[in-house]
Design a binder for these strands. Structure first.
Length: 508
RNA sequence: CGGAGCGUAGCGCAGCCUGGUAGCGCAUCUGGUUUGGGACCAGAGGGUCGUGUGUUCGAAUCACACCGCUCCGACCA
């Protein structure tokens, strides 16, 4: 069968790269690990930003912006934080270049007194501002978000999933009490869960990270974990309760209502352009990308069948009327995004380009449709019947009237499919280390999904040892899901009584 | 940074073993024929064969070094 993509999902890594390229999302750049995000990929990010920003503001947060450069001494203030990020930091040491023997080099006379790091995350520079902004318990809670780029010098970049520079939002909040801060941490985890499921149609499991997977400097880290089509886990968002670690390191204090001085409890939380990688690996198929309508930059693309003949004008006028009517509709609380594609390329090619890009509805209109008052359309979520592409003919009025419903139906269907995959591939009947080894050890490459097992929640060196053991199977503990049962089986690592259930799987 | 593989036209690849001066498919451009759908015919454009050094009368092909990419480790949103 002829597919729109030359690689299929059985070569998942190659397939992923093919989708990113063929859907015209992004490309590599001359700077290793840094990507160029092309208009279609950027359009998806804009939709993600727009909707998530509304939700962040709806929970009481305000946007602000902090510097890209952070004084080295700031990073050094929180011990665990330094250790966690030291190995992947870009450092600015000079502020001028000089031509020496025909070569442009950093001017030795322009060395900075104190080196600046390019932010890998902004706890420290924002904490510094917080220490000046907060005086009284009346200033709390302080709820700030920033949309920014950050840099982490990664060894093995992968477009969208792990790039040296990436885009994200990072929320930073300060609270008077532990309880307030913990509630905030959970509130934002829930915002991420709902956003991922409702908007990205990407089901996730929200839960707490084990101690060894915590954010450097956090008291607790929570994550949402999504299952990709190869069964691997993608950490799609994190929310951290930081306790008073950063407040103590940076002197973020307030005067309480009894007149005494207390340290703030702080939180931070973020999601990044990695979400786009998650959408690709959750919804893509062998014809390319499939975008959930809620984030598709173009939800309905109208392709006129033009033939360089006089009747083209009628077809175009008919299409313009159609697109105008569609753009006047509202779906998911936003105006419908419909496009009339009048590029001067062959219609058949337009169709396949939009298939690869994952536009949810592709409408083709020829002279006969125009004359009969019809449209012919394809659903990207249900593209083929065997080898044949499914084309549906409908009166134009009916299509316009049903368009919002149809987009909602596509969104819901994509979620349901992904949800079924997640639910059906969490294995719950493994009760021992041997069972785990047998399940994951037999074939490295096949689809495994995750397992959910009971454990004794060890800490310190015991946990470290388990981590090492799991590593031999390329496994990690993803999180301890929020919905825990009342009773637990024995710990699969120690055989002692279990106290918690955790998800284990391979991860990106 | 360690292990493996690969760098030949925009993309996918052949040619390399056995050195003789570069080819295929798709894409692109032009002309024509088509037209309810990924069309056909004819022609055309496009390549420092990753970079450098060496061997040789002659290197995409052999040798060495370097660079880059992909996968597997270490690191990670």
């Amino acid at each position: 069968m002829q597919r729109a993509l030359s690689v299929s999902r059985d070569r998942f890594a190659d397939w992923y790269q093919a989708v990113v390229r063929e859907a015209d999302m992004a490309e590599t750049s001359p700077v290793r690990g840094a990507m160029v995000i092309k208009p279609w990929g950027w359009g998806v990010w804009e939709q993600i930003q727009g909707e998530l920003d509304r939700r962040i503001k709806a929970t009481g947060h305000e946007n602000a912006y902090f510097p890209l450069f952070i004084p080295l001494s700031f990073i050094a203030k929180e011990a665990e934080h330094v250790e966690g990020f030291a190995k992947e930091m870009a450092v600015v040491t000079h502020h001028r270049l000089k031509n020496i023997d025909g070569k442009l080099v950093p001017d030795p006379d322009a060395k900075l007194e104190e080196p600046l790091v390019v932010r890998p995350t902004s706890e420290t520079i924002i904490g510094d501002a917080f220490s000046r902004w907060i005086k009284s318990h009346r200033d709390l809670p302080l709820l700030i978000n920033q949309w920014a780029n950050v840099v982490r010098w990664e060894m093995r970049p992968r477009l969208f999933l792990r790039t040296t520079e990436f885009l994200w939002q990072e929320g930073h909040t300060a609270h008077a009490t532990v309880q307030d801060a913990v509630e905030e941490t959970h509130r934002m985890l829930e915002v991420y869960r709902a956003f991922s499921e409702d908007v990205l149609a990407m089901p996730v499991i929200a839960g707490e990270k084990p101690e060894n997977e915590r954010f450097p400097g956090a008291v607790n880290t929570y994550s949402i974990e999504a299952m990709m089509q190869d069964g691997k886990a993608l950490q799609a968002g994190t929310s951290h309760f930081l306790g008073t670690h950063f407040a103590e390191a940076q002197n973020i204090k307030f005067q309480n209502d009894a007149g005494g001085m207390d340290f703030c409890n702080t939180t931070s939380w973020g999601v990044s352009t990695r979400l786009i990688g998650g959408v690709i690996m959750t919804h893509g198929d062998d014809d390319g990308l499939r975008l959930p309508p809620a984030i598709a930059p173009r939800q309905i693309v109208v392709v006129p069948m033009l033939r360089d003949k006089p009747e083209d004008a009628e077809v175009l006028a008919y299409c313009e009327h159609l697109v105008k009517a569609l753009n006047g509709l509202t779906v998911f609380g936003q105006p419908v995004r419909a496009l009339l594609d009048i590029k001067k390329i062959k219609s058949a090619e337009k169709r396949w380009n939009w298939v690869r890009k994952g536009a949810p509805l592709i409408v083709e209109v020829g002279p006969r449709d125009a004359a009969g008052g019809n449209v012919t359309y394809m659903r990207r979520d249900d593209l083929r019947d065997g080898d044949k592409v499914k084309s549906i003919v409908k009166p134009r009025v009916d299509f316009i009237e049903g368009a919002v419903q149809l987009l909602a139906e596509i969104q819901a269907g994509m979620y349901a499919d992904a949800k079924a995959r997640l639910d059906n591939n969490i294995k719950r009947d493994i009760t021992s280390w041997d069972g785990l080894t047998a399940y994951f050890g037999d074939d490295e490459d096949s689809f495994k999904g995750w397992v959910r097992v009971a454990w004794g929640k060890p800490t310190g060196a015991d946990l470290e040892a388990i981590g090492q053991k799991l590593k031999t199977l390329k496994l990690t503990i993803r999180n301890a899901p929020g919905d825990q049962p009342k009773e637990f089986a024995a710990c699969i690592f120690s055989g002692k009584p279990g106290v918690e259930e955790v998800l284990i799987g391979r991860a990106y």
